[in-house]
Design a protein around this nucleic acid. Structure first.
Lengths: 235, 235
DNA sequence: CTCCGCTGATCCAATTATGATCCATTATCG
DNA sequence: CGATAATGGATCATAATTGGATCAGCGGAG
């Protein structure tokens, strides 16, 4: 089983291929007017059958993002990149238009201090919930599942700070974090080794909270987030 | 929130799973029209049998929160998504319901660190805007006018941190200045003596920013906010 | 003990993906 | 020009995926 096979990922299928190609157009891999690789090439690159690949290309063609000519190839429309970026910004602009760098910066501002507060305010139920998130995360079979419980843990920590407004704000941030684009970023950056590091850091954070050690909790969470940021965005 | 608690009482029931999935939809884990993991995936993730999982899904389907198609999968309803996004966008309205104590706590978390960032990122225009706010505030004839320029100054400082997401969040918090209840609280607490103290603190903050002294800026803003909190809420 | 809910297993039906084959059009080169 | 290769277009039988449904068994609550 090739781990890189799209086929055995949860998000496999034609729509996933559409997203990948859209991203390639958006990020400039295939600029305006350039020729895409041949279908028989893309089929191998994305590890899908040619039929599936062709279905994806048809979607992109109907969206006007590419044009196809028999015997010549498929080409990115000149306005496709404009469309793609405009779409991205309209879909995500409101609160969602934040860059991963901005999000991580905000999280680094808020979460460590929230952890410090949580150390003094967390109830037994809060701590227990965190333990459960830890357990679930460590039992997770794949990246999305791990991410799910990872997110829940952070939510639990924020919640333990007993500031409803803070929780609301964090929920808004979390909603951004769950955008597909951001998810892709996370999946790419989460190697098994890094996941092990995260689990260790998580344990340390929760441990500090259980010890009611605010300084330790703040430091541990800050260290964790700095690690996450480095892994996500590079140093 | 209690969903996780329910799970470990050896009674990991269908209702608990419903709550978990509802939360996943609410917090954006499974957002707009996205496809839920397959039943055989969710059954493993939540550690329940497929029958139980399916019972939960049926509840969610009857609530109109998801739709299911044989051979395709289960999808979050756009209606459910609207609810989720509505939650995001009504962040402002929820903030209005937040207590002054919560708001001040959040401001104390965010603003000092934002000031530290602003020290390194503020443009000449940013600093000039702050100076203007200072001048206007000191020339203010009454409390509401002073409050206006006071608020603008804080917005300017946040803006100088050059984090659009942070600015958005702060704008939402700041919107509360228009709320009658909050305004009344401020009017009561703003004596001439305190206003003089604020003006002095403001000057020190801006001065530190102009000196590019992040530590000083953070400390000054923190001191200021602690003072404000004390005046507003009592020690 | 009985009842109810959860489990694990099995089979079914709808949908999608696959792999192979052949066709139509265009590009390349002698 | 003409032959050949390359490329998109199309179809089909088969396999894999996924929700739908049922059933016997098990275990705790009443």
């Amino acid at each position: 089983m090739d781990a890189l096979n799209l086929r055995d990922r949860a998000a496999s299928g034609a729509s996933a291929v559409v997203a990948l190609i859209e991203q390639g157009i958006a990020d400039g891999t295939w600029g305006p007017g350039t020729k895409l690789p041949t279908e028989r090439e893309l089929e191998k690159r994305f590890n899908v059958s040619r039929n599936t690949l062709r279905k994806s290309l048809r979607v992109l063609e109907e969206q006007g993002k590419i044009v196809r000519h028999v015997g010549r190839g498929s080409f990115v429309t000149s306005e496709a990149t404009v469309k793609a970026t405009a779409e991205d910004q309209s879909l995500t602009s409101r609160i969602i238009g934040a860059s991963p760098a901005e999000i991580m910066e905000l999280r680094l501002m808020v979460e460590p201090q929230a952890a410090e507060l949580a150390a003094g305010r967390a109830t037994a139920a809060d701590l227990h919930r965190m333990e459960e998130c830890l357990a679930h995360a460590e039992r997770a079979q794949d990246v999305p599942e791990f991410e799910h419980w990872d997110g829940m843990l952070h939510v639990a920590i924020i919640g333990a700070a007993k500031n409803g407004l803070l929780s609301d704000v964090y929920d808004a941030i979390n909603a951004i974090r769950n955008q597909p684009e951001w998810a892709r970023l996370k999946v790419r950056s989460l190697t098994p080794a890094r996941r092990a590091v995260y689990e260790d850091q998580h344990r340390r954070i929760v441990s500090a909270l259980k010890d009611r050690d605010g300084d330790q909790a703040r430091a541990a969470l800050q260290e964790h987030l700095l690690q996450v940021r480095t892994n996500l965005l590079g140093s």
